[in-house]
Amino acid sequence: MSFLKKSPWIIHYDGSSCNGCDIEVLACLTPMYDVERFGIINIGNPKHADVLIITGAVNSQNASVIKTIYHQMGDPKVVLAVGICAASGNFFRDCYNIKGGVDTVIPVDIYVPGCAARPEAIIDGVVAVLKLLEEKTKK
């Protein structure tokens, strides 16, 4: 499985984010930051993905979608919560429709801070994923 170690493929799901973190995740893939040179590819199929990136808090409607995507992914897998909303819900946690951060639904491995999270921070999070993936592969 050594080929998996350094090229994590990511799948991105927008929880109830305001779009700020989403476009920063996309900005990571474009020429300024260009994470594709490290073999990081954004794909739409959960079965192909190693890393699940979630932006935004969880509400009653999308909780089941997040669970479904998480269970469809093959092991080993890592969940990355990008932005303050995904970590704790930000001020949205006072809203009637918000359950809280992503960790209320699925286990989260790494939290990336920021509102909106900067591309550098997101890349830093993905780098931390590499180590974690390696450990999980050994198990």
Binding site: G15, S17, G56, N59, N62, C95, Y96, N97
Partner: peptide
């Protein structure tokens, strides 16, 4: 899917 209800804040 993205509804937060922030107007009520």
């Amino acid at each position: 899917f993205v509804h937060r209800g922030l107007e009520l804040l």
